[in-house]
Lab assay of single mutants.
Amino acid sequence: TETYETTDETEARKIAEELKRRGLTFRIERHGTTIRIESD
Rank of each mutant, 00 (worst) to 15 (best):
T1Y: 13
T1F: 13
T1E: 07
T1R: 14
T1W: 13
E2P: 05
E2Y: 15
E2T: 12
E2C: 15
T3C: 15
T3Q: 07
T3G: 04
T3D: 03
Y4C: 04
Y4P: 01
Y4V: 02
Y4I: 03
Y4K: 01
E5F: 12
E5W: 13
E5T: 10
E5G: 01
E5L: 10
E5V: 12
E5R: 03
E5C: 15
E5N: 04
T6D: 01
T6L: 06
T6I: 05
T6R: 01
T6N: 01
T6G: 02
T7P: 03
T7D: 12
T7Q: 11
T7G: 05
T7L: 06
T7Y: 06
T7W: 05
D8N: 08
D8W: 03
D8V: 04
D8S: 12
D8T: 04
D8H: 03
E9W: 14
E9Q: 06
E9R: 06
E9D: 05
E9G: 04
E9I: 10
E9K: 05
E9N: 04
E9M: 08
E9Y: 09
T10Q: 12
T10N: 13
T10L: 12
T10G: 12
T10M: 11
T10K: 10
T10R: 10
T10E: 14
E11N: 04
E11R: 05
E11P: 01
E11S: 05
E11M: 10
A12C: 15
A12F: 05
A12N: 01
A12Q: 01
A12S: 03
A12P: 00
A12R: 01
R13S: 10
R13W: 11
R13D: 07
R13E: 10
R13H: 10
K14E: 09
K14M: 12
K14F: 08
K14I: 09
K14N: 09
I15M: 04
I15V: 05
I15A: 01
I15H: 04
I15F: 08
I15P: 00
A16V: 15
A16P: 00
A16E: 06
A16F: 07
A16G: 06
E17C: 15
E17R: 09
E17Q: 09
E17Y: 09
E17I: 08
E18P: 00
E18T: 07
E18V: 06
E18K: 06
E18I: 08
L19N: 01
L19I: 03
L19Q: 01
L19T: 00
L19H: 01
L19D: 00
L19R: 01
L19E: 00
K20N: 07
K20P: 00
K20Y: 09
K20I: 12
K20V: 11
R21I: 06
R21C: 08
R21N: 08
R21K: 11
R21E: 07
R21S: 08
R22F: 03
R22L: 08
R22W: 04
R22P: 01
R22I: 03
R22T: 02
R22N: 04
R22S: 03
G23S: 02
G23Q: 03
G23C: 15
G23H: 04
G23A: 02
G23D: 04
L24Y: 08
L24F: 07
L24A: 05
L24V: 11
L24S: 03
L24K: 09
T25Q: 12
T25D: 15
T25S: 13
T25A: 10
T25C: 15
T25K: 14
F26T: 10
F26S: 08
F26K: 08
F26W: 05
F26N: 06
F26M: 05
F26I: 15
F26H: 08
R27C: 15
R27D: 10
R27S: 09
R27F: 14
R27Y: 13
R27I: 14
R27A: 05
R27E: 12
R27N: 09
I28E: 06
I28F: 05
I28G: 02
I28M: 06
E29V: 14
E29G: 05
E29N: 06
E29A: 08
E29F: 13
E29W: 12
E29T: 15
E29R: 09
R30K: 10
R30Y: 14
R30S: 05
R30T: 09
R30N: 05
H31N: 12
H31A: 06
H31D: 12
H31P: 00
H31E: 09
G32E: 04
G32L: 03
G32Y: 02
G32T: 02
G32S: 02
G32D: 04
T33Y: 06
T33Q: 11
T33L: 12
T33I: 11
T34K: 08
T34A: 05
T34H: 06
T34D: 02
T34G: 04
T34M: 12
I35T: 02
I35V: 03
I35N: 00
I35Q: 00
I35F: 06
I35R: 00
R36W: 07
R36Y: 09
R36K: 08
R36G: 01
R36Q: 03
R36F: 08
R36E: 02
I37R: 00
I37Q: 00
I37A: 00
I37D: 00
I37N: 00
E38V: 15
E38M: 15
E38R: 12
E38G: 03
E38W: 14
E38Q: 13
E38A: 08
E38S: 14
E38H: 13
E38T: 15
E38Y: 15
S39T: 15
S39G: 04
D40Q: 13
D40V: 14
D40F: 14
D40I: 14
D40N: 13
D40E: 11
